[in-house]
């Protein structure tokens, strides 16, 4: 049993048309024993940058607090919010700092990136537990159900989905993937991010 599977949990992020979505399950377990059905792994870092942190639960909290500290110092000194593409590099360097004793987390990021013209473009990315960044054009997955998520997402995702359709796609992908994984599930939470608002919905799932 790998330390990455100890607490369980999965996260997925998808690109849509002028929107992105990020979703995760809500389970926290001790191997096969379920402890909590309300353990959120997705955190709002800025108004339009969300990060999901699946992996070892102690590091979920520690890494979130660490990233929040560094992001807040950047924001208050620079007097501007950090863009998603900048933030993923902050995540990467924070993880690589612990190259020889890593945080057991594989972050997933979704956000709306400001372009030089002032418009916004959807942005998703993920990293491994030592901070190697994966920039994807379509979707990224991580966690104990990642193999299943890859499969279902590969089948359901299509380009240029509107926010409501993207919500349906990501929800179905997540719920069906975690049903095949003993370490993920127990409810889910979905965030759909557009340039001027974020919609958060909590989904019911199988409780077994």
């Amino acid at each position: 049993m790998s330390i990455m599977q100890y607490n369980g949990g999965s996260v997925i992020a998808m690109v849509g048309k002028d929107c992105v979505a990020i979703a995760s399950d809500l389970r926290l377990g001790n191997q096969s024993l379920g402890i909590s059905s309300n353990f959120e792994k997705i955190f709002a870092m800025t108004e339009r940058t969300y990060v999901g942190l699946p992996g070892l639960a102690t590091d979920v909290t520690t890494l979130h607090e660490q990233l929040r500290y560094r992001l807040n110092m950047y924001t208050i000194k620079e007097e501007r919010t950090m863009e998603p593409e900048t933030f993923i590099h902050l995540v990467s360097s924070t993880l690589y700092e612990k190259r020889w004793g890593p945080y057991f987390i594989e972050p997933v990021l979704a956000g709306m990136q400001k372009t030089p013209s002032g418009a916004f473009r959807p942005f998703v990315a993920s990293t491994d537990l030592i901070g190697c960044i994966n920039f994807a054009k379509d979707f990224v997955v991580a966690g104990t159900a990642s193999e299943k998520l890859f499969g279902v997402a590969e089948g359901l995702w299509e380009p240029d989905l509107e926010p409501e359709d993207l919500f349906e796609t990501i929800s179905q992908t997540l719920l069906n993937a975690v049903d095949r994984d003993a370490y993920s599930g127990w409810g889910a939470v979905v965030h759909v991010i557009t340039k001027d608002k974020v919609v958060k919905r909590t989904l019911k799932g199988r409780m077994d």
Partner: peptide, 10 residues
């Protein structure tokens, strides 16, 4: 003071 405040939040 900004560092102190963020340290407390941390």
């Amino acid at each position: 003071s900004r560092q102190t405040a963020q340290g407390h939040l941390f």
